[in-house]
Every structure is written in C-alpha cells, then in structure tokens.
Design a protein around this nucleic acid. Sequence first.
DNA 1: AGCGGGATTTTCT
DNA 2: GAAAATCCCGCTT
Length: 190
Amino acid sequence: MSGDDFAFLDLPAIEAAPRLLGCILEREIDGHVVRAEIVETEAYDQTDAASHSYKGRTPRTDVMFGPSGHLYVYFTYGMHYCCNIVTSGDGHGAAVLIRAVEPLEGMEVIEKRRGRTGVETTNGPAKLCRALGIDKRMNGHDLRHAPLKLVVQDALSESAITRTTRIGISRAIEKPWRFYITGNPYVSKF
DNA sequence: AGCGGGATTTTCT
DNA sequence: GAAAATCCCGCTT
C-alpha cells in the first residue's frame, strides 16, 4: 500500500481506532528491524472528558491538535510513556491510544528491551512503548518516515473486532471507545 | 488468580 | 497538593 494510505486518519478518532487494528508499526532500533501488529486501541477526542485535549491546546497536548499520522507521546505515573496516533486532521485535538501490539519480527530485541517474554512484552500501552523504544523524543514524529513507520493494512472485518469501554480512566468511563482483535493473546485485558 | 501498595514526575487545581 | 489513558512485586487465597 502507498500514497494516501493515511487518509483514514483524517476521520474522527472513534472511526480511525477500529481501522488501526491490524496495521503494523515498523521500528528501526539497535541496528534491527522490529515489526508489531496493532491489536488494541482506544479513541480520545476533544469533546471527551477523559481526553488530554478536553481542556484545550497546551504544550503537552500540542501534537494532538496538529496533523494526523503523527505520534503523540505522553509521560505518566512518573515513569511510563504511552503513545497515540493523531487523527482527524488539524485543530480537533484527537488521537488513538495504542494499548497493545503483537510482535511479528524482532522478538529477541523486544524481549531484551523488556526483560520479559511472550505476551508480557507488549500487552499494555507503556509496555509496548518500552519494547519499541518510544519515549519523549518520539513525540510529534511523522509515522510516514523511519525510524518508526505505520504500515497501513486492509481494514479488519467487523466480526473480528470487539468493542468495549476504555481502561484506566475515571471520567467518561461509559463511552465504548475501546477496540481490540477478538481473542488475540496480546490484548491487555479481556 | 486476585488484591494492595509502591515507584516517581509531570500536569493541573 | 493531588491525580495521573501504568506496571511490577509480594502477599494471600
């Protein structure tokens, strides 16, 4: 796939989130290539009390208001990074949190970076950032380019996707804006 | 398997 | 000063 593969990221986050399932993150790190399939996502947008962008544009959330297809990385709990893919074009303050990925290539590199094996390497938003070497320096990165690319795949069928409420938030907990590939062992919580 | 607490720092009230 | 889009360890069933 090529060209305007990223066009769907100009849709609202709630529509882009399920569409990102099955897409691949390709990372060049430590002289190796690591590839992982996105298996769990959550949508956040400016009308949403749980979103970092809810209260408007700030230095922290600046990237969420920028062009789609870029990476929004935030730091939390004093030690963890989590990453989002910015959606809906300019000015809307929306993004999709990547909550879990399934390693496809470079598992040795991932396990070494994590100090864990199997599903424990990437079944959570901060875990996968550690595994793929995503931190503050990656904030704002355009996913069209190395060393971290989003490789868009065909949309999964609706029957392969489970939709539920989001995890780890205290506001707008009722919104069913979490999506995951049904039965995938790398999903953070069933 | 499940619960409780600690780590540790940025951001907002 | 408190909360935070979390993770890991240790203790109890």
